[in-house]
């Protein structure tokens, strides 16, 4: 059970949060111009890395804010947390 440092509320138990999948996948600005393959790439394809992964998390039972997390999936170490719209920290 992680201890997650919400950028708005501080450290809270994982129970209060919801994981939201891979981060930094921007919704295409002009979906109608995309081919089926390009749209499918956005819609379906997600990374599943053993190692450092960039993820979206939501403080669902708290401030309801979304934020980003860098997590090593091999040992669940949370390496960084940063707000939506911010650039990921350089490794």
């Amino acid at each position: 059970m992680f201890l997650i440092n919400c950028p708005y509320c501080g450290e809270r138990d994982q129970q209060e949060f919801k994981a939201g999948g891979e981060a930094h996948i921007e919704r295409p600005k002009q979906p109608t111009e995309l081919s089926d393959d390009e749209w499918a790439e956005y819609l379906f394809m997600r990374k599943n890395i053993k190692g450092v992964q960039f993820e979206r998390w939501n403080h669902a039972h708290g401030c309801r804010k979304w934020f980003n997390m860098v997590r090593d999936t091999s040992n669940d170490e949370i390496k960084a947390i940063y707000k939506m719209g911010e650039k990921p920290p350089s490794q």
Binding site: K18, G20, R56, N58, R64, K65, W66, M84
Partner: peptide, 13 residues
């Protein structure tokens, strides 16, 4: 509500 918040906060801030 969760879905709408998600779009508002992450895609259309």
């Amino acid at each position: 509500l969760g879905k709408l918040e998600d779009y508002l906060q992450t895609e259309w801030p």
